[in-house]
Amino acid sequence: MARMKFICDAERCIECNGCVTACKNEHEVPWGVNRRRVVTLNDGVPGEKSISVACMHCSDAPCMAVCPVNCFYRTDEGVVLHDKDVCIGCGYCSYACPFGAPQFPSQGAFGVRGKMDKCTFCAGGPEESGSEAEFEKYGRNRLAEGKLPVCAEMCSTKALLAGDGDVVADIFRTRVVQRGKGAEVWGWGTAYGARQKGEGPGQGPHKPKEGVSS
């Protein structure tokens, strides 16, 4: 059985927030809750990176460990979900999660505590798959329809990958091998191809020297 996982490629994420918008629209997420958000590190300085963050559906999920009513459960695909009918809204899971995935829905300027809400990997909830009750509480069950999470499908640069953990890891590993790492990723070779001896900036293979016909 496939174990579903997310990976976000920080070298490809352009902070467009398309994944955030797609998630809210697909599941009609309540106001004040972002099941997915984009976090930018070193904003505005060299080395700036952005990454799309949501529930990572941990193999050893801390939210499951601290929940006093055991409303969290794991599906056969490794997706961590929760039962809103059992949830008491204590917020322990919100404090335990390193990704801040479980959130309180907010109503009005100051918010009102209620049942916790979190990313479902587009796998719905404990209700019957595709039912109106499931959609109202958890959003659309795309996995039951044979589809992947909408956030990954809508990512314009394919920075966000979702699906079978082994397949996703192979894709990311291939990218790293092909593009290199660190300074190699956005170096001269990436932008202009191999730099020839004696060529300066602006004189690579894609921009001929002055006086030389293309």
Score class of each variant (00 low, 15 high):
4 M>A: 04
5 K>P: 00
5 K>I: 13
6 F>V: 03
6 F>H: 07
6 F>S: 03
8 C>P: 02
9 D>Y: 10
13 C>M: 12
14 I>W: 06
17 N>M: 10
20 V>K: 06
20 V>W: 05
28 E>M: 07
29 V>I: 15
30 P>K: 03
31 W>N: 07
31 W>D: 13
32 G>E: 06
33 V>S: 00
35 R>M: 07
36 R>H: 01
37 R>H: 07
40 T>F: 04
42 N>K: 12
45 V>C: 00
47 G>F: 04
47 G>A: 02
49 K>C: 00
55 C>A: 09
55 C>F: 08
58 C>T: 09
62 P>D: 03
62 P>W: 09
64 M>N: 06
66 V>H: 05
67 C>D: 07
68 P>E: 11
70 N>W: 00
72 F>G: 01
72 F>I: 09
72 F>V: 01
72 F>S: 05
74 R>I: 13
75 T>P: 04
76 D>S: 10
79 V>L: 10
79 V>C: 02
80 V>I: 14
82 H>K: 12
82 H>E: 11
83 D>Y: 05
83 D>E: 09
84 K>N: 07
84 K>P: 00
85 D>C: 04
85 D>G: 14
85 D>I: 03
85 D>W: 01
86 V>E: 08
89 G>N: 04
89 G>R: 03
90 C>M: 04
91 G>E: 02
92 Y>T: 03
93 C>Y: 04
94 S>W: 00
96 A>I: 02
97 C>K: 04
98 P>M: 10
101 A>T: 03
104 F>G: 06
105 P>F: 05
106 S>L: 12
106 S>T: 10
107 Q>N: 12
107 Q>G: 12
108 G>H: 09
111 G>E: 05
112 V>D: 11
113 R>Q: 12
114 G>W: 03
115 K>T: 10
118 K>W: 08
119 C>P: 01
120 T>W: 01
121 F>T: 04
124 G>D: 01
126 P>Q: 08
128 E>K: 14
128 E>D: 14
131 S>G: 07
132 E>N: 13
133 A>L: 08
139 G>Q: 07
139 G>N: 02
140 R>Q: 14
142 R>I: 00
142 R>A: 02
145 E>K: 10
145 E>H: 01
145 E>G: 04
146 G>R: 07
146 G>L: 03
152 A>M: 08
155 C>W: 11
158 K>M: 08
159 A>P: 02
160 L>W: 05
162 A>C: 06
164 D>R: 02
165 G>A: 14
167 V>D: 15
170 D>Y: 05
170 D>H: 13
171 I>D: 13
171 I>T: 14
171 I>V: 15
173 R>E: 15
179 R>V: 14
179 R>P: 01
181 K>C: 11
181 K>H: 15
181 K>Q: 14
182 G>N: 14
183 A>F: 12
183 A>T: 15
184 E>C: 05
185 V>S: 10
186 W>I: 11
188 W>C: 12
189 G>Y: 08
190 T>S: 15
191 A>C: 12
191 A>R: 15
191 A>E: 14
192 Y>S: 08
192 Y>W: 13
193 G>F: 05
193 G>S: 10
193 G>I: 04
193 G>W: 09
197 K>D: 07
201 P>F: 10
203 Q>R: 12
210 E>Q: 08
210 E>G: 11
212 V>K: 12
214 S>T: 07
